[in-house]
């Protein structure tokens, strides 16, 4: 354990305690650490972008093939000044347009179509006949039951996000009655999903706490062994 390790361990422990002090309430030391963290994270990210992406690209390609990307980057950097910011709009447009297309294509081929098909796959004759053919009637019934629950949950959850409403004069626009009933069922499924998600977040935070305490105890133990 060299000096850098001791020094680094000390800093890490100090920062951990200062962040934990937030449990007592917001305080200046907590804010100082948070601002230091933001500076470090931003500087680290910028340096990585430069060192791991931009420089390797410029080093590995001939200059002729870099003209266009350099032009885009140059246009983007005009946004640093409000006077020239409008020149950077095409570069932003490239990012937005391509990003939108990537998102649309991915959503269709990766989520929408497979998930729509998957919602009905529990009732596919192949799966059911396989289960019934093997004599696993319990499995087959369980498959049907789970499939029905998933189908109902999926449809009703989607209906919950349906916000189309009928407008009536001098009244608050309301969804149709049937949609309202279905959406209430969907709201129940979403409440269950959020409850499970909450448990996951708590588990993650708990393990983060455990890891922090573990690293603190490790540092103290190693420090104790030095002396």
């Amino acid at each position: 354990m060299n000096f850098a390790d001791i020094f680094g361990g000390f800093f890490a422990a100090l920062f951990t305690f200062l962040i934990f002090s937030y449990a007592l309430g917001d305080n200046a030391l907590f804010r100082m650490v948070v601002h230091i963290f933001i500076g470090v994270a931003a500087g680290y990210a910028a340096a990585v972008a430069l060192h791991s992406v931009l420089l390797p690209a410029f080093n590995s390609q001939p200059l002729s093939s870099l003209v266009v990307p350099l032009l885009w980057i140059g246009l983007l950097f005009t946004k640093l000044s409000p006077r020239t910011a409008v020149l950077g709009n095409p570069a932003s447009a490239l990012l937005v347009g391509v990003g939108a297309a990537v998102a649309v294509g991915g959503a269709i081929q990766g989520t929408l179509l497979p998930q729509l098909a998957g919602s009905a796959s529990y009732f596919s004759p192949e799966r059911l006949s396989a289960a019934f053919g093997d004599g696993r009637f319990g499995d087959a019934l369980g498959l049907l039951f789970n499939g029905a629950v998933i189908l109902v949950g999926t449809v009703t959850s989607l209906a919950y996000f349906h916000f189309g409403a009928q407008s009536r004069p001098n009244q608050v626009p309301q969804r149709r009655r049937i949609i309202e009933i279905i959406a209430r069922v969907g709201q129940g499924f979403i409440a269950i999903t959020l409850g499970v998600l909450f448990a996951g977040v708590y588990s993650a935070a708990l393990v983060a706490l455990i890891e922090r305490l573990d690293s603190l105890f490790n540092f103290v133990g190693r420090l104790a062994r030095l002396f």
Partner: peptide, 11 residues
């Protein structure tokens, strides 16, 4: 992480 688990089961 456990917090992403429920949203990964559909896949």
């Amino acid at each position: 992480s456990a917090q992403a688990e429920p949203l990964l089961y559909p896949y």
